[in-house]
Design a protein around this nucleic acid. Structure first.
Lengths: 237, 237
DNA sequence: CCAAAAGTGTTAATTGTACACCCATGA
DNA sequence: TCATGGGTGTACAATTAACACTTTTGG
């Protein structure tokens, strides 16, 4: 078939912002670039869009390759396109954000890529425009998490309310009143209380909860003002 | 300089969803495709990303070409990438949404493109995945407009409260109580009342307002619950 | 028995919603 | 003078925010 003539074809890359939470801090999984330029500097995990796959598929593929994980929260975020963002040749970069349970991450898988978790607070210098990508992702996540229940994507299937609260407090760098937090969360009905307790972080133990899938699917986008209004960040484009 | 080898380069297109409001209805500006396949079917205005421009620049260029307008509200929305979305050859499509004052649209400019405004309610069949793009844009706009003051981007610099309300009622297909609407809007301080009245739609006349740029810049992302909660749509990815 | 973390209730302030009448004017 | 659309206020409901003490239990 005839093609579009006289147009420039461009490399399209998918870059994944893979976020985890270790109970205290947010972490970002990055890989060490194996080739020049900027060899051995740190980079988001990425790859080129292949002929027969969509961007979503590419993101899933890349995430699987690096972490061994599938069925992970993954969202297309923004496409970066400044003409010189990659000095080798022009590359349009589509950024995806993934929220993973850091415990499920399989250490061995990444050896090929020299992957490493960095504390979000202590990122090294990143290549190209990857810092801008990370900043945008954080802003988006803050915006979204302030209104919708998504942060538990960073926790195991069973988690405690104090864990969930730590997640919010870390992201917004603020203290939240646990009574208000608990009440709002429970009134949404998206959590199911288990019999079982987690005694790993206290003597008394905290009840485990899990997501009520039915309500979450129907109503996962429910507005849920877990963050006091004056802590909510501005919208992001 | 050495290039990335063995990778497939792909056409990147920018497609613009250009929204206007005629006082009663939302409208979408579309062009008639001038070549096969799907020749003479309707399409979003688009174009290929050029070697030396960013996507934002391409969107601005395309918008200018078609409408003659600059300095318009323009936002990158989503990138579409299914491998066969364009039957001619693979094209990754980055969608932008533009909100324009329909009155400023210059009719003569578009003659080359066979452009036409369609009522959002009465769209013709669109090419490729353009209908999906339009649906996503509408959802995004609803979501964003429910929380943030952006719809006046569709109105002239001076506008009346009834006009603004019509905009919200049209987008959400609902009636809004004008007392509550006015109070919320004015309490945000983003509007400045003019002396002047618009007598074009009533005998009494409605006061003109304009955006208070200072407050809007600082606080343009302010939460502003102009839409009753039960009318707010779900979040969009 | 005590330190450390989990769990729980009440009140006041703010915000949201429902509702109806008067006003100004051009025709 | 009247039909049309514009402007305004109040009361009740719902949500949010601020606040501190008791419970459990492993060491």
């Amino acid at each position: 078939m005839i093609k579009y003539s006289n147009q420039t074809r461009i490399l399209v890359a998918v870059d994944c912002i893979i976020l985890g939470f270790d109970g205290k801090d947010y972490k970002l999984l990055m890989v060490q670039r194996g080739f020049a330029p900027e060899k051995e500097k740190w980079s988001l995990m990425g790859g080129f869009l292949q002929p027969r796959e969509s961007l979503d598929e590419a993101a899933v593929r890349i995430l699987k390759q690096l972490t061994g994980l599938e069925n992970v929260y993954l969202e297309q975020m923004h496409t970066f396109s400044s003409p010189n963002r990659d000095p080798v040749e022009r590359v349009v970069g589509v950024v995806y954000m993934a929220l993973i349970d850091i415990e499920k991450y399989e250490r061995q898988i990444n050896d090929d890529f020299h992957a490493r978790w960095f504390l979000m607070k202590e990122l090294p210098q990143l290549i190209f425009d990857h810092e801008e990508m990370v900043q945008m992702a954080l802003n988006r996540l803050r915006y979204k998490a302030a209104l919708h229940p998504i942060l538990f994507e960073l926790l195991p299937e069973k988690f405690t309310l104090p864990q969930l609260q730590a997640l919010y407090e870390g992201l917004f760098d603020t203290k939240i009143d646990k009574r208000n937090f608990t009440r709002k969360l429970l009134s949404s009905k998206i959590l199911t209380k288990k019999e079982e307790k987690d005694k790993s972080s206290s003597k008394k133990g905290a009840y485990f909860y899990s997501i009520n899938e039915a309500i979450y699917r129907d109503n996962g986008q429910a507005m849920l003002n877990l963050i006091p209004r004056n802590e909510i960040p501005a919208a992001t484009e």
